[in-house]
Design a protein around this nucleic acid. Sequence first.
DNA 1: TGTACATCAGTGAACGCGCGTTCACTGATGTAC
DNA 2: TGTACATCAGTGAACGCGCGTTCACTGATGTAC
Lengths: 229, 229
Amino acid sequence: MCIGGRFELEPLIMSWTGRGGRRSYHHGNLREALISAALDLIAQKGPAGFTFAEAARAAGVSPAAPYRHFRDRDALMADVALRGFQHFERRLTAGWDEGRPSPLTALERMGGAYLAFAREEPAYFSAMFEAGLPVAEHRDLQEAGDRAFGVLRQGCEAIVAALPPGKRPPAMMMALHFWALSHGIASLFARGDAARRALPMTPEELLEAATLVYLQGLGITAKAGGSAA
Amino acid sequence: MCIGGRFELEPLIMSWTGRGGRRSYHHGNLREALISAALDLIAQKGPAGFTFAEAARAAGVSPAAPYRHFRDRDALMADVALRGFQHFERRLTAGWDEGRPSPLTALERMGGAYLAFAREEPAYFSAMFEAGLPVAEHRDLQEAGDRAFGVLRQGCEAIVAALPPGKRPPAMMMALHFWALSHGIASLFARGDAARRALPMTPEELLEAATLVYLQGLGITAKAGGSAA
DNA sequence: TGTACATCAGTGAACGCGCGTTCACTGATGTAC
DNA sequence: TGTACATCAGTGAACGCGCGTTCACTGATGTAC
């Protein structure tokens, strides 16, 4: 399981006495370990099947220890979702890769990054979108989500900007359409857990085809919006 | 909360002695009452926040009683999802209304029915799509889902059939695209619970615009595919 | 129409379990001087 | 460089709670004759 940030190894190593492999009194990096445990549990049993107590057990720590780092279970879940959005934003950004070699190619690749994220990080994905966290109550969550969406919007703006002024559709609408389309395909067909539905093609092919048809509908072709590879 | 099927009133009434409003020994319609209670609980607290015990309590029955009707909690959840798909299929069918007055208008209306279902039946929606039920292991669930999708596909077939033979896109692909698009908008922006995201327009407007652009990309206009109202 | 009997759909008490949470505590770490 | 002290990040025992599940049971209903 990739957990997004890298582990701080030094404190972990320093927290071992070295004698008989006994762990020192301090864990060294419990916060990270709890998040990592939560991701594993969510991936195995869904967002519901993760408890504070079990995360503590997985981290090899007493059930009271997590309270030093998170107010309660929901706070941990929100933190997982937050990291998920940050991770997600990075992957979309990498997929877009500043629009190289052409905006249209980059857009397809960014869609692929969306699907890859849903497939490879089911725990993050469900914490972000299906854990029932009230977005409006977690400002930081909402902002992180907005930043991730901003990457999609940026891409659409780049595509729109390459069109002649008279033929530019609103980039915001285009971005929302692309988001919804990617998200629908991701959560129905590309998700990395047992709820994935069968499909007579790859999710990537489905999304690519839909994107091409949609862009065609906006009057955008490889010629008008930048040459596709 | 609309629960899809109508209650069987007769047995409920007959289960009352009439003396002091005391309930008779037999509940009369416990199975339905449990499903109804499950829907309320899911709507209030998400798919995770529903327990067998609490459903029994809500139905005014001992905690052992549900075992006469459902093997376990998951069986009840699967039954809720199954009814959800049946209900969903009916609403899509009603939205399509046999393609009247024109296939394109009917398709938009069917998309609206998708969004309305997500908004008005959050409990069904999350049981169907977000409860983590393994679709592959519940054959009846999968079949019910396929039947609902069949309504979308039928609509797309009708639209395709109205085109000149040389210009017909594959209806299956078109239906999958429409499904993913509707589902993405529904689960991000139209859902009826706290996880709904803000949008600078109505979800219906967003879906309608996307559909029009998409159909345009397929070369389908009101003229070619039947006149829109 | 009445009676005997089988079956159905509940009761309610009991159980073990794991969870969330608290509490006073204590070993380890960091810092002032 | 050493010492005293404050703070940090854990322990582990304990608690109340609600859940899932079982059990022998029993009142209500349906049916055969």
